[in-house]
Design a protein around this nucleic acid. Structure first.
Lengths: 207, 207
DNA sequence: TATTATAAAACGAACGTTTGATTGTGTCAA
DNA sequence: TTGACACAATCAAACGTTCGTTTTATAATA
């Protein structure tokens, strides 16, 4: 009376795995722990994905799709940044950065950015984001440099880490704040910061 | 003819473990791998430290001592920031931030900051840094706020992530740069950035 | 009656740790 | 000066546990 096509257990696994990977990392999380939390049998991960590693890829690709889909509301990835004026491009980039804050601090994707940061060094887990590539192209255009120019890369780094700083140091910041996650007030502070400093960084006074 | 008091193998283990923990994380590194890289027998970690976890603590505490020792050249941890004028305190903080860049980008401690960032969420691996506490107190003094004020905490976050951004996203940045580690030129860019933006962040125009 | 989803059990491999033996070194009484 | 002894360092081997995965069986559905 309950053995029908039940995508429910599949999504429960995804949810449990995402939470645990973010908390304890890929290697620190056993599939037994995931399955216990998701309330499913031990074999279900292999059954649905083929293995633990494929489950990870599934989670990440899911995020990337969401990111691309979400970016469509404020970016046109097919439009060549070099065909846009510097001023318009700057405005677009600033808007994109603000939208990134919204994206990275929703419940859905907050765990995922933590996972990506944690596992970024695994050669087998490399992720290519077309959205990130496009943003880099925009920075290059604004600075009138090559996309692989050292200055462009560092400007991107400073921007991204500025946005993600609370997620990069979650244990540190949340422990001091005495919270389990960031609240609306925190996100507003981050956004305000983005508007102010990212703007300055982009406008290329130095660096 | 070679079995004498040989602290050599102990330090070789420390070096190998630091490199591997930074690369693959604590859980992703086996003691077999560490010992193989250090060219010592499998039992030596238990012999010297008692276990893998204790080896980790040994590494981290080693870093903290170095950090405290190093900070003495530009900070007096016993001096109460609230007894210093805002202007002098700002200058001291800026200097400290620049010194932090030097510290975090030397070969000795670059791996260690990566490890700390990776393992920060483990409740059993929590590290308290008196230097960081002092810097927080300085920020609070400059902003004339309580040390636990949300604004103080976020300013610290933004400052620290600004400094560490290239270390926070090492895979991302180094892959694009096509380098194995940051060079003098990169560190100069980071320092210049610190001077410019940290200064703006501290001076409290907003956030 | 296929097909899909779940369950329990078992697989070999890898893990961190411990054991017991062995080797070199420094100490010291004879 | 030497032989015995304590001790620190190292070794190979084995320990029990946990890991990701697979297998075989079973229940529910189309």
């Amino acid at each position: 009376m309950e053995k029908q096509k039940d995508e429910n257990s599949k999504s429960r696994i995804l949810e449990a795995a995402t939470t645990l990977f973010a908390q304890k990392g890929f290697d620190g999380t056993s599939i037994r722990e995931i399955c216990k939390r998701a309330n499913v049998n031990l074999c279900m991960i292999s059954y649905y994905w083929g293995g633990k590693q494929e489950l990870y890829r599934g989670i990440i690709e899911n995020l990337l799709e969401k990111q691309i889909e979400y970016s469509k509301s404020f970016l046109d990835l097919n439009r060549n940044p070099y065909d846009i004026s510097v001023d318009e491009c700057t405005e677009l980039l600033l808007k994109a950065m603000e939208k990134c804050v919204d994206f990275f601090y929703t419940n859905i994707s907050s765990d995922l950015i933590v996972i990506l940061l944690k596992e970024q060094q695994r050669p087998d887990f490399i992720v290519k984001s077309p959205v990130l590539d496009y943003i880099r192209k925009m920075v290059a255009r604004i600075l009138d440099k090559d996309i692989n120019d050292r200055e462009v890369i560092f400007k991107m780094l400073f921007m991204l880490s500025q946005i993600n700083s609370p997620r990069i140091l979650p244990a540190f910041s949340l422990r001091i704040l005495g919270q389990n996650d960031f609240c609306k007030e925190d996100i507003d502070i981050i956004k305000e910061n983005v508007k102010l400093y990212i703007n300055k960084i982009i406008k290329a006074e130095a660096v």
